[in-house]
Simulated assay, not measured.
Amino acid sequence: MQYRFITIEGNIGAGKTTLASKLAAHFHAKLILEEFADNPFLPLFYERPQQYAFPLELFFMAERYKQLKDMLQTQDLFREVVVSDYLFIKSLLFAKVNLPEEEYALYQKLFDIINPQLVQPDLLIFLNAPVSRLQENIRHRNRSYEQQIPDDYLRNVHDMYMQYIKQHPVRTLMIDTSKWDFVRQPDDFQRLLTALEEDYAPGINYMKL
């Protein structure tokens, strides 16, 4: 497998952590999982988003940067596979959705200072899921503060991801999760492993049925 640093991305409830953990176990890879539960502003944000959006996003960006910097700077990316369940750019994308224009402009300045210091993934696997599937997964994992996320918010997050992927030459493997089940269908997971043997061009590549 030629990709040494793989990132799994997708909307809230898309199954990023589950797939990242499964791939890391298969490849005996170093696993980087987002530590979202440590963000004290997350439950407050879902109750009062306008009041807590900026501290929420600032905390997330600082924690993601520290985690990636600490874990990747000591990593030999030529010898060991690394799998992460988030892309650092998600800090900027969620800030774009959640912050008013003035706060977003300040946030972007901070992001632009630290982003060049991080290693970028060789391959982005994007889990593209319909809102109905996302809501089903959100209900199933039963985090109390997520249960009232509106469909429109999930659509806005999806649109922001798509805009970024289409505008930047990120080597992306796009997967429709309504057609693939890597957890309950071993054959689907095996097909993903086969797909990871391909040499993808920068831009969007679709996993074929």
Results as ranks from 00 to 15, higher is better:
residue 39 N to E: 00
residue 40 P to C: 05
residue 180 W to D: 00
residue 3 Y to M: 06
residue 75 Q to W: 10
residue 105 A to P: 00
residue 95 A to K: 03
residue 170 V to W: 11
residue 53 A to P: 13
residue 26 H to Q: 04
residue 42 L to K: 11
residue 148 Q to G: 15
residue 93 L to D: 04
residue 124 L to Q: 15
residue 112 D to P: 04
residue 106 L to C: 02
residue 50 Q to K: 15
residue 137 N to D: 00
residue 139 R to H: 09
residue 138 I to W: 11
residue 55 P to N: 07
residue 158 H to C: 04
residue 66 K to L: 14
residue 97 V to Q: 12
residue 59 F to W: 15
residue 23 L to G: 05
residue 136 E to H: 14
residue 156 N to P: 02
residue 4 R to W: 02
residue 151 D to R: 10
residue 17 T to W: 12
residue 188 D to N: 12
residue 10 G to K: 13
residue 153 Y to E: 03
residue 101 E to L: 11
residue 162 M to N: 09
residue 33 L to T: 00
residue 17 T to C: 10
residue 73 Q to C: 14
residue 123 L to G: 07
residue 1 M to V: 09
residue 166 K to G: 11
residue 58 L to Y: 01
residue 116 P to T: 10
residue 71 M to I: 13
residue 203 G to V: 05
residue 78 F to R: 12
residue 19 L to T: 05
residue 25 A to F: 07
residue 206 Y to D: 03
residue 62 A to E: 15
residue 191 R to Q: 10
residue 198 E to M: 10
residue 49 P to C: 06
residue 88 F to G: 05
residue 192 L to A: 02
residue 162 M to S: 02
residue 181 D to P: 02
residue 187 D to C: 01
residue 152 D to K: 11
residue 121 P to T: 06
residue 117 Q to C: 01
residue 182 F to S: 03
residue 104 Y to K: 10
residue 176 D to F: 02
residue 75 Q to V: 08
residue 173 L to S: 12
residue 33 L to D: 00
residue 10 G to N: 06
residue 23 L to H: 04
residue 43 P to M: 08
residue 71 M to A: 15
residue 46 Y to T: 12
residue 170 V to N: 03
residue 56 L to K: 08
residue 184 R to D: 00
residue 42 L to S: 09
residue 204 I to Q: 08
residue 126 F to V: 07
residue 21 S to Q: 15
residue 26 H to F: 01
residue 152 D to A: 12
residue 131 V to M: 05
residue 3 Y to E: 00
residue 161 Y to H: 15
residue 24 A to N: 05
residue 58 L to G: 01
residue 99 L to F: 06
residue 207 M to E: 06
residue 80 E to I: 13
residue 42 L to V: 12
residue 169 P to E: 09
residue 30 K to S: 01
residue 35 E to V: 11
residue 185 Q to A: 07
residue 200 Y to F: 14
residue 188 D to K: 08
residue 99 L to T: 05
residue 136 E to M: 13
